[in-house]
């Protein structure tokens, strides 16, 4: 419990301290999550320099966020780090397991750096475009609604859960839980968005009622990943709450969703 409050304190404090602190905290989160991922996935002995190169996605992406270069941010990870990773692997020259390793590394940097980076990039919204609570309010609202979506889904599953979303991944996430989360999170998002975002009612409802689908899919996908890797939690970073990868699973799916919808409906900056 203490560890969880410490994380809230860190993220909340960073949001209050401004965009520099926020970008640094998110960069640290990306690093910790990517390191957990790199530790658990299969890599080849020769790939150590490649893994180091993948870590370079973090300073470069967050550098683009700090410099407010959205166009650069969009192409760094999915194109240039991706191409660089594959090139470096080809130069090293081991071919067995080439595609598997290239895929595994690319997947990790998309989830841990590119997707999570969208949450951090919201802090660079110009104050005039952001809602009444400023850019920090946007980031806070995204995180709070994602946590609510997870919590409502867990509570719904606990009290009404019958039909697993995926029979193979077990009874942890259910259709009933998702329905409860859609109702609760959608209502809360629509009701509160006027305080945190510049959205009007209809777009807010659209984003809010679909957000739990992304959140639940994010954690379901991470559950599948952990099942393949043979672990229950990604690490013991927050005892009782798992590791960084466990905690960012939902956010890695909700962040791009909320970011792009805000960009379409309200923000001219992106």
């Amino acid at each position: 419990m203490l560890a969880w409050w410490l994380v809230s304190l860190f993220v909340g404090g960073a949001l209050l301290m401004g965009w520099v602190a926020t970008v640094l905290v998110f960069a640290a989160v990306s690093f910790i999550a990517l390191r957990e991922y790199a530790t658990l996935v299969p890599t080849r002995r020769e790939d150590r320099p490649v893994v180091l190169f993948v870590y370079a996605a973090i300073p470069i992406s967050y550098g683009a966020i700090a410099l407010d270069l959205y166009g650069y941010f969009l192409v760094i990870v999915p194109i240039y780090i991706f191409v660089g990773t594959a090139s470096l692997m080809a130069l090293i020259g081991r071919t067995d397991g080439f595609l598997a390793t290239a895929g595994v590394l690319t997947w990790g940097m998309l989830i841990c750096v590119f997707n999570i980076g969208h949450a951090a990039f919201l802090i660079r919204t110009p104050a005039a475009e952001a809602g009444p609570a400023g850019p920090a309010g946007l980031v806070f609202f995204l995180i709070a609604m994602t946590i609510l979506a997870d919590a409502a889904e867990a509570a719904g599953t606990r009290f009404f859960g019958r039909t697993p979303l995926s029979a193979r991944l077990g009874p942890g996430r259910t259709v009933e839980g998702l329905a409860v989360s859609i109702a609760a999170t959608g209502t809360a998002f629509t009701a509160l968005s006027a305080f945190y975002t510049p959205l009007t009612l209809a777009p807010a409802a659209f984003i809010g009622f679909l957000l739990p689908v992304w959140a639940v899919m994010g954690s379901l996908v991470m559950a599948a990943v952990k099942r393949e890797l043979g672990v229950a939690t990604s690490s013991d970073l927050l005892p009782g709450y798992g590791g960084a990868l466990d905690r960012i699973a939902s956010l890695s799916f909700t962040a791009p969703w909320v970011f792009h919808m805000l960009a379409i409906f309200a923000l001219d900056h992106f």
């Binding site: 690093f31 390191r35 957990e36 790199a38 530790t39 150590r48 320099p49 893994v51 180091l52 870590y55 690490s235």
Partner: peptide, 15 residues
């Protein structure tokens, strides 16, 4: 041993 194995000068972070 993955972070800094024998014979390597390159430090790569792993847990």
């Amino acid at each position: 041993g993955r972070v800094l194995p024998r014979g390597s000068m390159l430090l790569v972070p792993f847990n």
